[in-house]
Design a protein around this nucleic acid. Structure first.
Lengths: 341, 341
DNA sequence: AAACTATGGTTAAACGTTTAACGAGTTTTA
DNA sequence: TAAAACTCGTTAAACGTTTAACCATAGTTT
């Protein structure tokens, strides 16, 4: 059951080095012996021990995937879907992904993920905003690292980013095209570049259409962009501004909160208020009405991240330090042509 | 940056064996030297190399998690949530989880997951129904294995199972208590023990209440228990049976399909038809009305599975070969008292 | 025919741990 | 007081690979 390189060598009547050369194609070996070795490998159902290879090569064949607890457990499976993308690509690249989450309030005293301390990974993928102290600590280990959907404030790293400005433009333009003029923006955690870029896109679109930007149409003081805060922000917005006919929410979680507020308060979507989200999470399709949104290619982002890491590991040199993934407007039933009352 | 046991030994002025004994507490060492070693470890920021430990111990510290592609990618994150449970527990137990998915139509020719071939795992967790040929092939490797939510047909394995009969009873009793008599069951993939047990619970509850079981109230010919088939089964049911006042769906995915059918066809839930699902997936809360369902403790199932594996690995002997996890009735707004028209 | 060059292979060290076998002091026992 | 037993250590082999250094043979130059 557990045959080693020695067994193969004996069976093929060669040295273990020769077996190694055949397996890795790392030195010219005659067709004849090569076949003998290959046959022995098959006969013994031999597969090299990863542990041994790891030890001697200093590599592990693993890549760590880090996100914060709240991202890990949040209702909308955004970052976990990205994880699936990396796992998918890792399979064809021969890597394993070790997933772990960290506390969002990581401090100097907290310990790093085990796979970093144990040297169990060759590279790291970090998804979403993570604490600065953690980044500092990790960077001391000099592991190739790529960030997804977050720009670390200090050092420069390879990045996989969403084209958020473009998304903000698409969403807002869609509403403008439908005839809306009183378009609100609902956001939260505006220190996160993604959210602030979406707001920039919104402002840009309004500017392009010569629609004045009204500050009381922008509700962005919530700490986290989740459903509850979406609901509360909608309450804040509509209690003061009855004339808003369309809302662009910074992400789908908030959009869902907004939709629930509207449902609960007698507004009909899209007849009374049009609503656009951002992310395209599973839940959107299940809403009544299904949510118009900006699709973020989550699986693809994971794939890109893994490719970037693997490229730097294989020293093929990473082609681009910054991948901006495109977004797409998905028109469903939560938006419609503006009809004055 | 990369200090080894040798560096520690030199710094503490002891042999590397002593360092090892201190780290693993595997032989009595005097307080004095122990402290010296500990200090050296801290000073050098030493962490043992996993690769080396793996090689010498023959263990990997990894546990494989297998599910099929369709379960991996399905809309309701059922098995992936279970995975999160295992990952969570693995952290405190010092294991890594390697997740991989396999084709649902795995045949003799297909290759096993890499982590089995590479001997990269010490044990395996299998979630959901997987092809029989795959089970056979895996079992040849004699790795400790536990199954979650599936009973393999041939050999006997440690199992983590849902108390589906109890769940079926709870759901149906709830409807009976509300005064319903014409209660339908909608299922699919009835060869899966989970689904057929839920049906058994349904029948048992009706029997207990002396309500005759009507075959045309049981729609269970769909191949997969998903939303689409839920929708179609509801169509089948209601086009022939106008008098059904309550539906128990075999899982939430089907329940969601049923709900959409009812919405689309002028039935009000719960005023006209009460609806109960099974699983308690995220989506339930977002439905209008939120779905009454049977909660399956998914995270806990993952935790139990990992504990079982780890126990057998540490040879503490697994306490029970079969863990039946309890379920819970979650009453939300899709069920109400029966009102005759 | 002597000297060089490929070609195809072997030997042995190295990677960083664990652990069986051994040993030097110190205590206990009879 | 000599033998036995315990304490706290050390030495060295082993785990399964990769790879630098080496070597034998045959073919090619001069």
């Amino acid at each position: 059951m557990k045959s080693t390189i020695k067994d193969v060598a004996k069976k093929a009547n060669v040295s273990i080095a020769t077996v190694s050369f055949v397996i890795n194609d790392s030195k010219p070996i005659s067709e004849d012996t090569k076949n003998r070795v290959l046959k022995a490998i098959k006969a013994l159902n031999y597969h090299p021990s990863k542990s041994a290879i790891n030890l001697v090569s200093g590599k592990t064949g693993n890549i760590g995937f880090i996100l914060t607890d709240d991202h890990f457990l949040r209702t909308e499976p955004f970052y976990t879907t990205i994880f699936l993308g990396t796992e998918f690509e890792a399979r064809s690249e021969g890597y394993y992904i070790l997933l772990t989450s960290v506390k969002p309030d990581f401090t100097e005293k907290d310990t790093l993920p085990r796979f970093i301390l144990n040297k169990s990974v060759d590279g790291i993928i970090i998804a979403g905003k993570i604490p600065h102290t953690l980044i500092e600590k990790i960077s001391a280990y000099h592991l190739p690292t790529v960030f997804i959907d977050y720009i670390p404030p200090t050092k420069s790293y390879p990045l996989i980013l969403i084209d958020n400005i473009q998304g903000g433009l698409l969403a807002t333009n869609h509403l403008i095209t439908l005839g809306h003029r009183n378009i609100a923006f609902i956001g939260g955690d505006m220190k996160h570049p993604s959210l602030s870029d979406r707001l920039s896109g919104y402002k840009q679109a309004l500017g392009n259409a010569n629609i004045p930007i009204k500050n009381n149409f922008i509700i962005a003081d919530a700490k986290y962009p989740d459903r509850k805060n979406g609901y509360n922000s909608a309450k804040k917005l509509f209690s003061k501004n009855k004339n808003v006919s369309a809302v662009f929410a910074g992400n789908d979680a908030m959009a869902i909160g907004v939709l629930h507020y509207l449902n609960d308060n007698g507004y009909k979507v899209p007849q009374d208020v049009s609503l656009v989200g951002f992310d395209d999470v599973e839940a959107d399709l299940m809403l009544r009405p299904p949510l118009t949104t900006i699709r973020v290619p989550k699986i693809e982002m994971g794939i890109e991240a893994l490719k970037l890491i693997v490229n730097t590991l294989k020293n093929k040199k990473s082609l681009s330090k910054k991948v901006l993934v495109p977004v797409e407007l998905i028109i469903r039933e939560s938006t419609s042509v503006y009809k004055p009352k």
